[in-house]
């Protein structure tokens, strides 16, 4: 998130804050019809996740409950809800925006920490081991070209990703 946006977001209500962020722009269009919830594969198997309720809580300004809760991490990112929303609320993107806020505040599940540290270290979220890399030639696969770790490090520093992660590490 750019600094100007962050400063602007500081004085806003929660729905405004979400709407001011990349991915969160459409949140206020929601009229609570529930098409998302009835399209959601996760909502069908657990009472802990319901996209309509998550949007409702956000619109009501229940920031702590939303950001510190389990629900934002239970979206499987299938985009069914977003595809079918009659109001064109980009629900999956809104949930990414909510997760981004949680991350900035250091509330992030361990698996995502692992992804972030792998990205910073290897330039990839899943590393190709030396063993697997060596085996490629016996399978008839060409050698892997080098990964752009250096470029990625500079990009992650330009977007502030590395600082976000360090902050999370301190907490």
């Amino acid at each position: 998130m750019e600094r100007a946006e962050r400063e602007k977001a500081a004085g806003l209500s929660f729905p405004e804050e979400v709407a001011s962020r990349l991915g969160g722009e459409t949140i206020k269009l929601c009229y609570q019809c529930g098409t998302c919830a009835s399209s959601c594969p996760v909502a069908k198997i657990t009472p802990n996740f319901n996209p309509r309720e998550l949007i409702k809580l956000s619109l009501l300004g229940e920031r702590d409950e939303v950001i510190s809760g389990d629900a934002i991490w239970l979206c499987c990112s299938c985009y069914n809800c977003q595809e079918r929303c009659p109001q064109k609320v980009e629900i999956a993107e809104v949930i990414y925006a909510l997760r981004n806020i949680a991350f900035e505040e250091g509330r992030i599940p361990p698996i995502y920490s692992e992804f972030a540290s792998a990205l910073l270290r290897d330039g990839r979220i899943i590393k190709v081991s030396k063993f697997v890399e060596k085996k490629r030639s016996t399978l008839g696969l060409p050698p892997l070209k080098p990964t752009g770790v250096e470029a990625l490090t500079r990009i992650l520093s330009a977007t502030g990703f590395n600082k976000l992660y360090e902050r999370r590490e301190r907490k």
Partner: peptide, 25 residues
């Protein structure tokens, strides 16, 4: 053709952390 210097594509796990980073990557 295999390109040199590619990285992670920045999929949903990265988007979950920071949308701007994922677009840039």
């Amino acid at each position: 053709v295999d390109l040199a210097e590619t990285t992670c594509c920045a999929p949903p796990p990265v988007r979950s952390i920071d949308l701007e980073t994922s677009l840039a990557v």
